[in-house]
Design a protein around this nucleic acid. Structure first.
Length: 553
RNA sequence: GGCCCGUUCGUCAAGCGGUUAAGACACUGCCCUCUCAAGGCAGGUUCAUGGGUUCGAAUCCCGUACGGGUCACCA
């Protein structure tokens, strides 16, 4: 009668190392007391998901704030879904958010002593552990075809029992070693399954760092740990990698809660200490009145590139996400006049337990606050960098005269409560057209939105009068006094109070006369401070715009 | 369906047996103002529901409803 030892040898003759060898190669990390080792471990299946940014941000701050390590591991075991190059994209995008890892996978090669950091390069490590598990009788080759598994599932459904490969339904669980060897020698395809000793009627408890104690049914399913392509499944790779990479806290999506007993079961079988788990709530979206997880398929905002494309400052998204993670962060920002989440003491215990609805309004609010507090030079540099990538015409405009563009950005900026009208770089593009002659001409051609309650002839007269007679090159007060004077000449009120008191006595209000100038100069009836705009445009341009607008009436 | 997790203003939420149930965003109104963006002030049936426990429940217990998740050779 053959032994498990022989079976292990037949399956993995190339594996000569043992678990002890691995323990030696990946020793306990020498870190100060309390330092946490966390990781971001995405599959290279596409671009960075907003939810992934959320969990990676959390893992990052936990490591940073405890003086530990944040590393990056590429979980590329699903060869069918792998998208070439997306691992590198993920790293680039994370980098855009300032979330850089200390250790792990890099496009240029691994960095760190606990690698390789790409699961496809760790085959031998998994096999070493599996070989040992087979020796101990805790794993076995299984010969079920997909059809066999379908049949098992169908029986289970008919019998109204739980689906899964367990107990009497685990067809090949109780094959003898001889039978297994025979099948393998006959060339029957196989996978390796973990042999669970769990009892479904018992409970496993574990303490989640966010939710506290969670009690679940014991795992009794013999899960697949090595697929027919020779790569491990997530369940097994997680246990092996996080053990040998010495991770101390796993922060992962809450969808993993139900499979945690599988992981704990395997940690126990290997006599390894399980890490702490922090199951992060998903970010949700309202869809026809129902909450659901943000979906990469349906929701553009599920990809972080959506925000980057529009020109949100990465920090704005981060600040928003941190405010979801720890709601006291928002108050902290106000109290500390800072939007740097690295300085904020993050706490897993303060995390909310249910998934937050993604709130674009709030993101916009934070984004405006952040841009408003940002020095004009920084806004310029960032807008320019964004435009270079996303908007060629805008880039052209910026670089044709950076000093001029800088002045535009400085409007009403250096004051206690600066303007807050830009949430993202594309807003700047949209709101500054009129500062550029060719674009202003386009606006003029489309027709200026003068208030229709006034006779065109009156508007025209006023515009010409203003062009010729208002004060140029003077301070705001003097200039505005001259405007009032001209307004009065045309029987417009020179203060809004006066007008309100007796509207019928006047041709129009002070606001109305200011609006004529505003519309003529900017093509809209909403704009920042007129005097500052004129200052930037220059007297000649102002005069010519007033006159041209008048001519077109 | 089984099993988990959850439920405080429209949204994010504080709250830990006695509170006028914070705050922020959004919304509405007013003020300021050359218009906006801001800023200031004010406003709104908020503890899913039914039972307990208790002198007293948003807070503790049980049930119900609703929402989310999960049950793969995907992660």
């Amino acid at each position: 009668m053959a032994t498990n030892e022989e079976l292990a040898e037949l399956l993995f003759p190339e594996i000569t190392e043992t678990i002890e060898d691995l323990e030696k190669r990946y020793p306990k990390r020498d870190l100060p007391e309390g330092a946490q080792v966390t990781r971001f471990a995405p599959s290279p299946t596409g671009f960075l998901h907003t939810g992934s940014l959320f969990t990676s941000m959390i893992s990052y701050v936990i490591a940073k704030q405890s003086g530990g390590i944040f590393y990056f591991r590429l979980e590329d075991t699903d060869t069918k879904r792998t998208i070439e190059g997306s691992g590198n994209d993920l790293i680039d995008q994370l980098h855009a958010f300032g979330i850089d890892h200390d250790e792990g996978y890099y496009p240029t090669g691994d960095k760190g002593a606990y690698g390789p950091y790409q699961q496809s390069a760790r085959r031998d490590i998994y096999k070493t552990v599996i070989k040992e598990l087979i020796r101990r009788g805790r794993a076995y080759p299984d010969f079920c075809t997909p059809e066999d598994l379908d049949a098992i599932r169908a029986t289970q459904e008919a019998n109204k029992v739980l689906p899964g490969y367990y107990g009497v339904y685990a067809r090949d669980r109780n094959l003898t070693v001889d039978e297994r060897i025979e099948k393998i020698k006959a060339g029957t395809p196989w996978v390796i399954r973990y042999r669970s000793n769990g009892d479904h009627d018992k409970k496993t408890k574990f303490v989640d760092a966010i939710r506290g104690e969670i009690e679940l049914q014991d795992n009794d399913v013999d899960v697949v740990i090595l697929k027919s392509d020779g790569l491990p499944t997530y369940h097994f790779a997680h246990v092996v990698d996080d053990h040998f990479m010495r991770t101390t806290i796993i922060s992962r999506g809450e969808e993993w809660i139900p499979s945690t007993p599988i992981h704990l079961d395997m940690f126990r079988a290997l006599d390894w200490k399980a890490p702490k788990y922090a199951h992060i709530p998903s970010i949700m979206k309202l869809d026809h009145g129902n909450k659901r997880k943000l979906s990469k398929r349906k929701d553009p905002e599920a990809a972080v590139s959506y925000f980057l494309d529009q020109g949100f400052d990465p920090n704005a998204l981060l600040v928003y996400l941190m405010s979801i993670a720890n709601s006291n962060f928002e108050e902290w920002c106000i109290a500390n006049k800072s939007f740097d989440f690295n300085k904020f003491q993050f706490s897993l215990k303060k995390m909310s337990l249910d998934g937050a609805l993604f709130d674009l309004d709030k993101l916009n609010y934070f984004a405006k606050e952040i841009v408003a507090k940002m020095p004009a030079e920084e806004v310029l540099a960032k807008t320019k960098a964004w435009a270079e990538k996303y908007d060629a015409a805008f880039y052209e405009r910026i670089t044709s005269n950076e000093e001029y563009f800088g002045k535009i950005l400085n409007i009403e900026k250096n004051r206690p409560n600066p303007r807050k009208d830009y949430a993202k770089w594309s807003d700047i593009e949209r709101l500054t057209h009129y500062f550029y002659e060719p674009l202003w001409n386009e606006i003029l051609d489309k027709g200026l939105p003068f208030n229709e309650k006034f006779e065109k002839s009156l508007v025209k007269e006023m515009l010409v009068d203003l062009a010729d007679n208002m004060a140029y090159g003077v301070d705001e007060q003097t200039w505005f006094a001259s405007v009032k004077e001209i307004a009065a000449k045309h029987n417009f009120a020179i203060s809004n109070k006066e007008y309100k008191a007796n509207p019928t006595a006047f041709a129009g209000s002070l606001s109305d006369s200011a609006e004529f100038i505003r519309v003529a100069l900017t093509g809209t009836n909403q704009s920042p401070n007129l005097h500052e705009i004129m200052d930037i445009l220059g007297d000649d341009v102002v005069k010519s715009r007033l006159k041209l607008s008048a001519e077109r009436l």
